[in-house]
Simulated assay, not measured.
Amino acid sequence: MAINIRKMNKSDLETFKKWLYKPHVAKWYHEPESWIEEAEKSDSEFNWISHCIVEIKGKPIGFCQYYACEDSDEDWGGYTKLGGTYSIDYMIGETEFLSKGYGKEIVRKLEEKIKYHDDAKRIVVQPEKENKASRGVLLSSGYLLDDEKDIFVKVI
């Protein structure tokens, strides 16, 4: 079943907040207040981040975002200064959609969106070591692990 990724809007905020406090999400999305603040200020202070909702047949099932690393204050182990570096975050909020391959599809769709940016050269992601599911998604999606920096990288 195909997923759709669309721009997050203000009416999605309550669902997003609910997902952040679900145990399977909260263990990886620490400091939910920060994530909520970024989403609430997506039209102003955090307009450099593309906040998105993942849907299946119009039903919101998750959240994802991407941004140019040069717009953030993160160095990404030196990858930011190389230029053309983007990062992604993703999660499935609705438990019945976990472990069905949707994570890999979300990553693929995010890559498609990033490739439209003329400067895009690579994507970097840094899930926690314990997040085996996300790390598995990235490896199966063609990302390579930079062991020294513990950062997954894919040249696009």
Rank of each mutant, 00 (worst) to 15 (best):
residue 128 E to K: 13
residue 6 R to D: 11
residue 94 E to Y: 04
residue 34 S to W: 02
residue 88 I to F: 00
residue 20 L to K: 15
residue 58 G to Q: 03
residue 152 F to Y: 03
residue 104 K to G: 12
residue 82 L to T: 14
residue 147 D to R: 15
residue 69 C to Y: 06
residue 15 T to N: 12
residue 30 H to R: 12
residue 8 M to A: 03
residue 50 S to C: 04
residue 35 W to E: 13
residue 66 Y to M: 08
residue 102 Y to G: 04
residue 17 K to Y: 06
residue 5 I to M: 05
residue 47 N to I: 02
residue 144 L to E: 15
residue 135 R to H: 08
residue 75 D to A: 05
residue 96 E to C: 02
residue 110 L to I: 10
residue 154 K to F: 02
residue 58 G to M: 04
residue 91 M to P: 00
residue 94 E to S: 03
residue 64 C to E: 02
residue 85 T to M: 00
residue 110 L to Q: 03
residue 99 S to C: 11
residue 10 K to M: 10
residue 120 A to L: 05
residue 118 D to C: 02
residue 50 S to T: 15
residue 32 P to G: 07
residue 26 A to I: 09
residue 49 I to R: 01
residue 121 K to W: 05
residue 34 S to D: 10
residue 54 V to N: 10
residue 149 K to R: 14
residue 11 S to R: 13
residue 101 G to F: 01
residue 65 Q to S: 03
residue 101 G to W: 03
residue 113 K to H: 05
residue 14 E to H: 08
residue 149 K to C: 06
residue 67 Y to P: 01
residue 71 D to W: 00
residue 128 E to M: 11
residue 82 L to N: 12
residue 138 L to M: 06
residue 29 Y to G: 09
residue 62 G to K: 06
residue 148 E to R: 07
residue 97 F to A: 08
residue 82 L to S: 11
residue 83 G to W: 03
residue 100 K to T: 08
residue 109 K to E: 14
residue 62 G to I: 09
residue 121 K to F: 04
residue 133 A to K: 14
residue 9 N to F: 07
residue 105 E to N: 12
residue 58 G to R: 10
residue 32 P to H: 05
residue 108 R to S: 15
residue 105 E to I: 12
residue 61 I to V: 06
residue 83 G to T: 08
residue 100 K to R: 11
residue 41 K to G: 04
residue 97 F to T: 14
residue 100 K to G: 06
residue 145 L to N: 12
residue 1 M to Q: 13
residue 151 I to R: 05
residue 54 V to S: 03
residue 59 K to Q: 15
residue 70 E to G: 09
residue 38 E to T: 13
residue 71 D to L: 02
residue 6 R to A: 12
residue 125 V to K: 03
residue 104 K to P: 02
residue 33 E to Q: 15
residue 42 S to H: 11
residue 41 K to C: 07
residue 65 Q to C: 04
residue 144 L to Q: 14
residue 146 D to L: 03
residue 136 G to Y: 01
residue 121 K to Q: 00
residue 49 I to G: 01
residue 13 L to G: 15
residue 93 G to E: 01
residue 60 P to L: 10
residue 53 I to F: 05
residue 41 K to E: 01
residue 18 K to M: 12
residue 40 E to H: 08
residue 115 K to W: 02
residue 16 F to C: 14
residue 108 R to Y: 01
residue 147 D to N: 15
residue 105 E to A: 13
residue 153 V to N: 10
residue 98 L to E: 09
residue 132 K to Y: 04
residue 130 E to K: 09
residue 41 K to S: 04
residue 105 E to R: 14
residue 53 I to G: 11
residue 77 G to I: 06
residue 119 D to H: 13
residue 56 I to G: 10
residue 55 E to L: 03
residue 75 D to Q: 05
residue 22 K to L: 13
residue 13 L to S: 12
residue 105 E to L: 10
residue 61 I to P: 02
residue 67 Y to C: 09
residue 37 E to Q: 15
residue 102 Y to Q: 07
residue 118 D to F: 00
residue 20 L to C: 07
residue 52 C to D: 09
residue 124 V to F: 00
residue 53 I to A: 11
residue 70 E to K: 13
residue 132 K to H: 07
residue 136 G to I: 07
residue 2 A to F: 07
residue 55 E to W: 01
residue 54 V to E: 06
residue 81 K to Q: 15
residue 126 Q to N: 14
residue 28 W to C: 11
residue 130 E to S: 12
residue 64 C to Y: 02
residue 96 E to P: 00
residue 142 G to F: 00
residue 55 E to S: 10
residue 66 Y to C: 00
residue 92 I to L: 06
residue 89 D to V: 10
